[in-house]
Simulated scan of single mutants.
Amino acid sequence: MIKSSSMVACNSFATRQAARYITRLYERHLGTAHVTSTQFSILVLLSETSGMTMSELADALVMERTSLVRAIKPMERDGWLKAERVSQDTRKLVLSLTLQGQNKVQEALPLWQKAQQEFEAQVGSERAAQWRHDFLELTRGT
């Protein structure tokens, strides 16, 4: 980090640096399963529901729909998830996991747990829990 820069007082700069650092840590672990951290989040969210629309998933991830579409295309191609039209509204797509997607979650979960352990070893469990709470509280307001 550049200590002499005026950017050290910038909240955006600091949080983006932290986000990139944390993403690299998690992706180093998840890479063994050929999953990015964004893909892992999508897979887990879909594994916990019976299906989500693109809008619901984008909202849950605090992500632009166009970015979400780019993220799910390779997952559809690889057979991890499927998109089906809702019968009442043919414009809406509901995303859900396939069996391959469920298997991918099971493969990636222990790797994610190792990433969690490494991160918490670096910053402490209590501090990590407080950060999660604070960041989730912040994003729920959006």
Rank of each mutant, 00 (worst) to 15 (best):
F13D: 04
G141I: 11
S125P: 05
Q122I: 14
L138P: 00
M1C: 02
M75I: 07
I22T: 15
T36Q: 05
M1Q: 07
A115T: 07
K82A: 04
I42D: 05
E120F: 08
H34D: 14
P74W: 08
F13M: 05
I42H: 06
L61H: 02
V44Y: 03
K82M: 07
Q130S: 05
H133W: 11
K3W: 08
Q17W: 11
Q88N: 10
V105T: 10
A60Y: 00
Q106Y: 04
F119L: 15
T15R: 12
D78H: 10
Q130L: 14
L99E: 13
R65K: 14
R85Q: 15
T38W: 02
A33S: 09
V8R: 13
M75N: 05
N11A: 13
K3P: 10
R70H: 13
S12P: 00
A58T: 04
R91M: 06
L43K: 00
L109S: 09
E64H: 14
E84Q: 10
M63G: 03
L97H: 01
E84M: 03
L136I: 06
V123E: 07
H34E: 13
T66R: 15
L46I: 02
Q17H: 10
E76A: 09
P110S: 04
I72D: 02
R28Q: 15
F135P: 00
D134I: 04
K114F: 05
I72M: 02
Q117R: 10
P110L: 08
P110E: 07
V35H: 04
